[in-house]
Computed example of a mutant assay.
Amino acid sequence: MNRFVITCGDINGIGPEIVVKSLNWLTFRKNKSKYYFVCPENIFQKIIDQLKPDFDFEITSPNKATDSSSKVSIITLPDCREKTGYPTKSSGLTSFQALQLSYAFLKSKTAEAVITAPVSKTALNMAGIKFPGQTEMFSKWSGSKEFVMTFLSKQLNVALHTIHIPLKNVHKSLNQKELEATINVLISTLNKDLAVKSLRIAILGLNPHAGENGLIGAEEDKIVKPLIRKYSRKIVIDGPFPADAFFAKKLFKKYNFILGMYHDQVLIPFKYINSGFGVN
């Protein structure tokens, strides 16, 4: 039996609602999975007053989670005052507590995987939480120094070399050591997590026109191309590609993963192409 823990996300946003809708769909399929939904009880009660749950559930505390025999267990957090549509200090703290508890479930092997609802970085900051995002939280808690944010879909898979940093700082984070670590994580993900046998990775350039042979920037020639030559002895790895032409020509269809240098470079086309069908 697969066991999943699902966080509520920011309670002032769409998180709790989409979790209940997702659980309705998942449990309708009559799979054998077990679901733990971490959420303040007052928020869960409000949602199910408006949206009928089509699943059996039991409301319980975190320390009694393993005692619950229902398909869906609602793991309660302290009640949180709701202010729909607005980030608040309390909503930021609640979303952080849900994430902390979800990791504790993983560590104790109560659950095997975490599914996170959307959080508000503004609310997290208001609560004094200094992580730039959820990916960085799990990296810190698990002691993983090498990690990559990836987005998967049937249409294409993309990865980010840098995550939540200002655009003006991206070039400072681009060096051979860190880029090599990113590529190694992608290779491991393709081999171990996605069971891909024929690896094909595309790397996008940092600068317009992928640097135009050094005329617009030297990062491609000095950092990216030497690594492509190194890895091309073992796998198919191509680039650096100008991002605009790469997506316009639909070259992404030829590769298992597209590695972008910064957030919007790959997430704009990923979300446009998939129209909501994809997973982070």
Rank of each mutant, 00 (worst) to 15 (best):
A181Q: 12
F105A: 11
I59S: 07
S120N: 02
N169R: 01
P226S: 06
D54Y: 14
S198A: 13
S153R: 00
H263T: 00
S73R: 06
G9S: 09
Q265K: 05
I268A: 13
F28A: 15
P166N: 02
G92V: 03
F96H: 10
S232Q: 15
G211S: 07
K225E: 09
P132N: 00
I74W: 02
L101W: 08
E41S: 14
T84S: 12
N63T: 14
K168E: 08
K172I: 02
L215Y: 14
L227K: 06
K107T: 05
F55H: 10
G15C: 12
D193H: 09
K71M: 11
K130M: 11
A111N: 06
I258R: 04
E178Q: 14
I14S: 04
M149K: 04
R229W: 04
Y35N: 11
L106I: 13
V114W: 06
D244G: 06
L101G: 02
G15T: 08
L199G: 04
I228S: 04
Y272I: 07
K109W: 00
S188W: 12
S153Y: 01
V72F: 08
N274P: 05
H161G: 02
H171D: 00
L106V: 08
K250G: 00
I223M: 10
L174W: 01
D49N: 15
L267D: 04
I163F: 00
T116L: 05
P16I: 07
L174Q: 01
K130V: 09
F151Y: 12
T116H: 03
I223T: 13
N256C: 08
L186E: 05
L167W: 02
P87W: 01
S70W: 03
I163G: 00
N169V: 00
E219D: 09
E212C: 09
C8M: 13
F257W: 09
L186S: 02
P242H: 08
V279Y: 14
L23S: 12
K271I: 08
S33M: 07
S275R: 10
L179N: 06
Q97L: 12
Q155L: 11
P208W: 09
T189D: 14
S232K: 15
N24M: 05
I75L: 10
V224R: 07
L215S: 15
G13H: 05
S91T: 12
C8N: 13
T76K: 11
Q45E: 15
Y36N: 02
G217I: 10
Q50K: 15
Q155T: 08
Y262S: 05
L179H: 07
V38L: 11
N24C: 01
N31L: 15
N42A: 12
K197F: 08
G128E: 00
E112W: 07
I223H: 08
Q155M: 01
A243H: 12
H263S: 02
C39V: 15
E41C: 14
T135I: 06
P62C: 11
R81E: 08
K30Y: 12
S91N: 11
S188M: 08
P269F: 04
G239E: 09
S22I: 04
R81N: 11
T88H: 02
I203A: 04
K177Q: 15
V170W: 01
G85H: 02
A243N: 10
V236E: 15
H171P: 07
S173F: 06
V72H: 05
F96M: 08
F252T: 03
K121A: 01
N280F: 13
L206R: 04
